[in-house]
Design a protein around this nucleic acid. Sequence first.
RNA 1: GUUUCCGUGGCCUAAUGGAUAAGGCACUGGCCUCCGAAGCCAGUCAUGUGGGUUCGAAUCCCACCGGAAACACCA
Length: 585
Amino acid sequence: MLMFEDVKEHLTQIIDSFCQTRGLPTGKVEFRNIPFSGEWGIAAPLFPLAAADPDKSLPVPKKAQEFAEILKTQAEELPGFSRIEAIRGYLNLYFEPHQYAERVVSTVLGQGKGFGSSEQQGKKVMVEYSNPNTHKPLHVGHLRNVILGGSVCNILEASGKKVIRANYIGDIGLHVIKWMCNYEMYHSGEQPDADTMRWMADLYAEADKRFVSEPAFEAAVRDYFGRWDAGEQHLKDLWKQTRDWSMEGFDQVYALLGEHFDRIYFESEVEEPGKALIEQLLESGLAEDGRPENPVIIDLDKKLGTNEEYRVVVILRSDGTSLYATKEIPLAIMKFEEYDLDQSIYVIDVRQSLHMKQMSKVMELMGYPWANRMRHLAYEIVNLPGNVTMSSRDGTVVLLDDLIREATQRALEVVREKNPTLDADMMLEVAEKVALGAIKYPMIARENTKIVTFDWDSALDFNGQSAPYIQYAVVRANSILRRLNEPAPSMAAFSHELLPVEVNLIEKMSQLPDVVQKAAVEFKPSLVATYAFELAQAFNDFYTQCPVLSAEGSTRLSRLVLVQAAKISLENALSLLGIQSPQVM
RNA sequence: GUUUCCGUGGCCUAAUGGAUAAGGCACUGGCCUCCGAAGCCAGUCAUGUGGGUUCGAAUCCCACCGGAAACACCA
C-alpha cells in the first residue's frame, strides 16, 4: 500500500524499539495485507522475530503470539486504527475505515489518469519488440509479442522509466527474394488493395507454396538471390517499393492495436556493419575462421572454459554471407551508443534463450561494459489445441487479420443485440474496442513463461475473466454518472457505515500503484491483468449490493465519488494493458 | 547426452516463504416492477511423486516421473 507509508513508519518504529529492548534484530518484520475480506488493514507476521529470539523456551508460533500481544498494547496509542488484534502470531491493525476511504478516493480523483503511475526517475530503457519480417503476414503468435512488449513499455513508463520503443524489422533474406520473384513472374505491375497486409500475406503464401512444390520456381528464386547479391539496381528498386508496402501494412495493424515505435531498425542497415565487425573479431582472435569449408565461429565454451554451457556461435556463413548473429552484434552496440541506455530489453520468444545468452556473452568478451545490461524478456509461444505449433508451412497459422475481423464481427452482433439504439458508427467503434480487448487480454493474462493455447471459442468468448468483463464494469460506472442530473461531486466525506463490498473496492483501488511497481520490476503485465479483473469483480460486487443514485444524503455523495474513482482505476489498469475502455457497450 | 521452461479441481489460470489455496470456463439450480443480466448468488471437485531446508513450502534445494523447447552455418 504505497499510500500509507507514514502509518507503516510509525508502526516500524514501535516494533524496532520493542526489538531493541529485547535484544532482537530489527528490520525483520514486513507488512502484508490482511487476507480476510470486508475489513481493511495491515498485518505483521511476527514469526521471523520469534525465530530470531535466542530464548528457545517456547515454540516459535507461541512466542510470535506472545510478541503480538505485547506489541498490541504498545500500538494502541497509534491514531487511525479502529481495532488492533493479536491472533495466531500476527499483529493485525484494522484501519479506521472512513478516514482511509477518504484518503484513497481523494488520491485517485486528484491524480486522475496519473493514478497508478510514479514520478520520472530518469532511467532510460529500450524495449525491442514486435520484430516482424516484411513480405510476410502477422499471425496470432506475433500478437503475443506485440501486446506483451507494448504493455511492458506502458508499465515501465508508469513506474517512472524513460522508455524507447524499438522495432527491428527483418527486411532482407530468402523470404523477401521468394516474394519478389513470385511477384515479378506472376503478378507483375499489380498494386496492393486497401487491405495491404492481407494482399502481401496472400502473395507470400503463394510464393512459399510454389517454392516447395515447383522446382522451376525454386531455381528461379536461386537465380534471383544471385542477382540480388550482385546488387542489381532493378531488384533494389523493387525491394524498396515492396518493403514500403509491407511497412504500410504493419502500420495499419499497429494503428489498430494502438502501438507505436520510437525507433525502427532494419536488418538491411546492420548487415554491412556486421560483416565489418567480423573482421575485427577475427583480428582480435576472439573468432575463428573456418572458411571456405566451415563458417566463422566464436567457441564460447573454449574461450570461457565452460562445458556445454555457451556452446558455439556461428557469426558468418562459410560462403561469407550474413546470419542473424552477424547483424545482432552491431545492433546491440548501436543501441547503447545512440541512447546511452540503462537497460536494453529484448522481447523475444523463449526458443532463442541460448542465442540471447550467447549475444550478451559476446558483448562482454568484446569488452563492452554494458553487456550485463542487456536483458532477454522471454515469453512462451502461442500454440493451437492439441499442442500443435503454428506453422505457416502447414497452413496452421491464424492470421491476425482474420482474428480481428471475426472478433469484431462477433462483438458487433452482441452490441447490436444489447444496445440497439446506438448509431452505426458508435456500434462499430464499441465493437472494435471490445474485440481488441478480448483478443489482447489472454495474451498477457498469464505468466510470460506459460504457453498460450489459441482456440476460436475462448478467443471470441466475451464472458468471465476477459477484457469485456472489465470494460463492462467501466460502462456500468459510466452509466451511473451519466444518469446523474447534477454535476458530479468532486469529493465527499465518508461518514456512512461502509459495507464490506465498499471496503473491498477501496482496498483494491489502493493497490494499483504497488501492482504497477511490481509488474515493472518483474516485467509481468500479467500482474496488472489479474489485478484489473479483480478490481472489476470488486466493482461488480459493489454495484449489485450498493444503490448509488437512489441512496440518501451523504451515502449517495460518497458512493458517487467512489464510482468515479473506481472508473478511473479500471480505465488506468486497462490502459496499461493497451486496452481501451468504451463508455457504452 | 547437456541445458532451460512448465506440472494446482473435468478444462484454463491465481496466490512478496505466512493465516481458511483464489478465480474463470464447463455443469446444475436460482436472481431483471429496483443505477445496464457482457452481470450477480448458490453447489461438486485441486498443489505430479519422494526426500530435504524452515517455526511455517504450491512457492526454495535434490532426485524421479510426465510434457514442451534449445543446443555449428533458420531467425
